[in-house]
Amino acid sequence: MLKGHLDAIVLAALEAGPAHGYAIIETIKSRSAGAFDLPEGTVYPALHRLEQAGLLSSAWTPPPGGRRRRVYSLTKAGTAALAEKRKAWGRFSQAVQTSLGGGRAWPA
């Protein structure tokens, strides 16, 4: 189930600013309080897919006194896609919540 939403979760993790793969995984883990315990490598196919789709851009950056890292950032299209995915998720989750009997009537 998580896999179907991984692209949106990765986009959201990059909303605060550019980050490399390891930092993205750490953000996802901390935001979900460890609930999203997916293999860390899973994020790389998602990053590559999103970059191919033009939703992310990436570049190698040499950090001062450290290893060089490939850093990803949201593109304009990525920001728009994230907003769209948020709306779609909001509608979907509300509908499920209502169907399960725990929320207000849908559509609101």
Partner: peptide, 17 residues
């Protein structure tokens, strides 16, 4: 090309971890 790029990226990730 993907193998080359990912090898460097994954190595960085694993060393950080």
């Amino acid at each position: 090309p993907l193998a080359q790029r990912l090898a460097s990226e994954v190595e960085d990730h694993l060393r950080d971890a």
